[in-house]
Design a protein around this nucleic acid. Structure first.
Length: 443
DNA sequence: ATGTTACCTCAA
DNA sequence: TGAGGTAACA
């Protein structure tokens, strides 16, 4: 058996890739925070990528061969402690985070025996297991997930870390000094997201309506459990409280999660499965619903049905009956196999995306493009209207002054809404007629 | 109680 | 127009 040499600075943990495939698991939409960095040909030795995640006190770096996981951790300068101790802690974290005590190969065998659909797919999707994530990070990340795609969720979570958590360490790119260094921020604690200004700021960062959900959820946690700091666990009390949900029953823990704004049944179930040890829970989203209809004989409605609580339960119950105890884990394999973005949105093949957005919306007339647009569009539109409409648009001589005033007010606004959005909101409220004249609603 | 609808943005 | 939904409202 050909064993891969251990990369310099790394330690090895023997582990068949059938038990864990980092390439699949770390970008299948469980965690949105892993960096996936391609290795240069000179350092590969059969390994494609280096994977990095910033924890509260260290960055964990991983590489993987067919039969081993290689790991090392990097700390900020000046942290005391023995190397041996630190790497032992990191190894313990790895065992816990990847739940390596659970025999995934045996689970695949059981699912394949009970389910012909799974049996047909399992060889092509090996090593997909459930991570055991941090509950607070998981909660906030999945509030971001509503009406959203993996690519944007990833950008949002990164933005959250960069803006609300100080940098912990900066590392060179594994491909060498020709590529820029990578700076790593831990996930921010609840208190960092709880202040009322956060909501508008997140709006300006492109979070949309999720901005309020995140801030209000963080505020609820802080109000209920305080902001003290457990130096030993590096956690705030509300984070520790979220951890205690692991010892509740599934329905009790779910009831607690549903109290947060922005958390409905689907998001709650994601958290139960991905960070609260509820291995049997199957989150039902549009993908899973389609899978259930197509492959598992769920009655497909004649019309496009909404995901009512009743329907949600039907889908969930149906699939749980097929897969048993670890149904949630099995669902993750099917979900990953169905992900269209699995190949195309891979971080390894895509250069780092630019920051989510500028605060263009919040900050004024200096950003030229958003402001110039409203003036440019209407000209052509008005001509069309004039030609096709029986009603002639009346533009009073002073209308452009009102428009200028309106745009100034819009630019000075601190709500965090994008300029386009603020225009729309005003229009909905029936506020500014002259702006309507210049910026007719499209369609 | 069930069934609709609006909600932010981004990338087609 | 829709993307791994949720809250608010008939």
């Amino acid at each position: 058996m050909a064993t891969t040499a251990i990369p310099a600075g790394f330690r090895a943990l023997p582990l068949p890739i059938t038990q864990l495939s980092l390439a699949a698991v770390l970008k299948c939409g469980q965690s949105f925070r892993w960096s996936i960095l391609p290795l240069p040909p000179s350092e590969r030795h059969g390994l494609d990528n280096e994977y990095r995640l910033c924890l509260r006190d260290r960055v964990v770096c991983l590489r993987q061969s067919p039969d081993a996981l290689f790991y090392r951790s990097v700390f900020p300068p000046g942290v005391p402690g023995e190397m041996e101790t630190r790497e032992a802690e990191t190894l313990a974290w790895i065992r816990d985070y990847f739940q390596l005590e659970i025999d995934l190969v045996e689970l695949y065998r059981q699912w394949g025996t009970a389910d012909p659909v799974f049996d047909r797919l399992q060889a092509r999707f090996e090593g997909i297991r459930m991570l055991r994530q941090d509950p607070f990070e998981n909660l906030i990340s999945f509030i971001c997930s509503s009406n959203n795609n993996i690519s944007r969720i990833t950008k949002m979570v990164k933005s959250l870390c960069q803006h609300y958590s100080p940098a912990l360490v900066t590392l060179p790119h594994p491909s060498g000094p020709t590529l820029p260094e990578e700076t790593y921020h831990p996930f921010p604690p609840p208190s960092a997201l709880a202040r009322s200004e956060v909501s508008a700021k997140l709006r300006s960062l492109g979070f949309g309506y999720r901005a309020d959900f995140i801030q209000r959820t963080a505020a609820m946690l802080v109000e209920t459990h305080g902001v003290g700091w457990d130096a030993k666990k590096l956690m705030e009390p509300s984070e520790e409280w979220l951890m205690t949900l692991r010892s509740l029953s599934t329905s009790e823990a779910r009831a607690e999660l549903l109290k947060f704004v922005g958390v409905g049944r689907k998001v709650a179930d994601c958290i139960l499965l991905m960070s609260l040890d509820k291995k049997e829970v199957i989150p039902v989203d549009t993908h899973v619903y389609q899978i259930a209809i197509k492959y598992y004989g769920l009655n497909s409605p004649s019309k496009a049905a909404n995901m009512t609580p009743r329907l949600y339960d039907d889908v969930s119950t149906k699939l749980a009956a097929v897969w048993g105890d670890y149904a949630g884990w099995a669902h993750s394999v099917l979900f990953t196999s169905d992900l269209k973005s699995f190949a195309s949105h891979g971080l390894s093949s895509t250069p780092p995306a630019p920051p989510l957005t500028r605060d263009s919306a919040g900050s004024s007339l200096e950003s030229t493009s958003p402001v110039s647009t409203p003036f440019e569009t209407p000209l052509s539109t008005m001509k069309r209207k004039r030609a096709t409409s029986t009603k002639k648009p009346t533009v009073r001589p002073t209308a452009f002054l009102e428009v200028a005033d309106s745009l100034s007010a819009l630019a000075a606004d601190e709500s965090g809404y994008s300029l386009a959005e603020r225009v729309k909101r005003r229009r909905r409220k029936g506020g500014i007629s002259s702006l309507d004249t210049f910026c007719p609603a499209s369609g």
